[in-house]
Design a protein around this nucleic acid. Structure first.
Lengths: 211, 211
DNA sequence: TGTATTCCTGACCATACGGTCAGGATGTGG
DNA sequence: CCACATCCTGACCGTATGGTCAGGAATACA
């Protein structure tokens, strides 16, 4: 009788373990914060000895940094919907849908990001100043163009973007509060749909992109 | 020559010191999170020996609990504006102004609250289930009434409230990100006014409370 | 098959943390 | 002025943390 077809080549094992550790770390960091998280607990969640984490990630901070970077990537990809769109109703509507979906599927990641920024971004300040800055300026130009074409009201693009981020990420970051106010149960599929609909209604109508 | 008129009676000293410690704790907790904050650092910020903190507040958690409760009180008071109002434009507009002002004046408190909720409210879960729940239901009824009176669109009150909280608190919790995207400078008075105006425009127009 | 390389981990270490306490200082009320 | 209560704090303690390391196990490669 052979062993169950366990893990394969060394290279594959490495990738698997790194993914495993990153997933465990994301969960623990989101629940306890950077300061409250311990390498021992991350190791337990990942099902590996603590010393093994330090083989793959030399320090707690380097592990944390990679967790944050992964989230930021997912986060940026939601922008595609924005760019391809013809007008504000379509583009911003799709962006809201995408970001709401991320809040639903990756709440832990969103919390880690929120925590990092709230603590003055000690680890990813350079990202804020470069990648995020460029991203924001690019989207602001699109919004300004839509305003100039009179497809929406004259709204300050930055404040609109802040509102989009705030509202959509709130469903992840404050998910526990929402759950409590929902009688202790997570939002159902229908309730998530209602949330998306409400958000899109208010914002798209609020900026004059729909009647 | 007399001493400078230093602190007075014992009772007054107690109140002064407790205020001093709570202020220092709010700052440190907001910057480092509960897990990352240390009693030593709070003591240094307050300018008192660490052992003295433990005289007034037996444990780190009891100190933290009082910090969170203080914030929650301020936070609830902003509701007054909501209740007294005649209609949605007035009531919600004033509520937005009040919450934006809190974000500006008490950013540290807002961050502590956000952090607490993000970590599943280990310390103030009872508040969420009682006080916040009642508060929310009360405000939801007012909104439902406005809807019934056709003074605004048929919006789900809970999702509207989440949007109000998310958007206004974003200016405190993500203040660092906003500052970075603002070229590294805090928002000026004019920029704060523009923020309030944008938020009120989008939301009030979005719910059909103004044209 | 031999050996070089990568992977893994139990045991260990220095440090820093929350919290305690004995005993002195300071104010209070009679 | 005295006796009492409150206030204050340096020194200390047990514990848990991030990180290290020697040496063994597993795999790759020739």
């Amino acid at each position: 009788m052979h062993d169950a077809p366990r893990s394969n080549s060394k290279r594959e094992r490495r990738q698997e373990n790194e993914k495993l550790i990153l997933a465990a770390a994301e969960k623990v960091f989101s629940e306890a914060g950077f300061g409250g998280a311990t390498m021992q607990l991350i190791a337990d969640v990942a099902g590996l000895p603590k010393a093994n984490l330090h083989y793959y990630f030399p320090t707690k901070e380097s592990l944390y940094r990679q967790v944050v970077q992964r989230i930021f990537q997912i986060w940026l990809q939601a922008a595609d919907t924005f760019d391809k769109a013809e007008g504000p109703a379509e583009g911003i509507g799709a962006y809201i849908d995408a970001k709401m979906e991320i809040s639903r599927r990756h709440p832990a990641g969103s919390k880690v990001w929120a925590s990092e920024v709230m603590h003055r971004a000690p680890v990813i300040q350079d990202y804020l100043e470069t990648t995020l800055m460029e991203w924001t300026e690019g989207r602001a130009k699109i919004i300004d163009r839509w305003v100039a074409e009179e497809r929406m009201d004259a709204i300050d693009p930055n404040h609109l973007l802040y509102m989009l981020w705030a509202t959509t990420q709130h469903y992840a970051d404050f998910g526990h509060q929402i759950e409590t106010l929902n009688g202790g149960s997570p939002l159902t599929d229908d309730q998530w749909e209602a949330a998306k609909t409400s958000v899109k209604h208010i914002i798209l109508r609020g900026i004059g992109a729909i009647k």
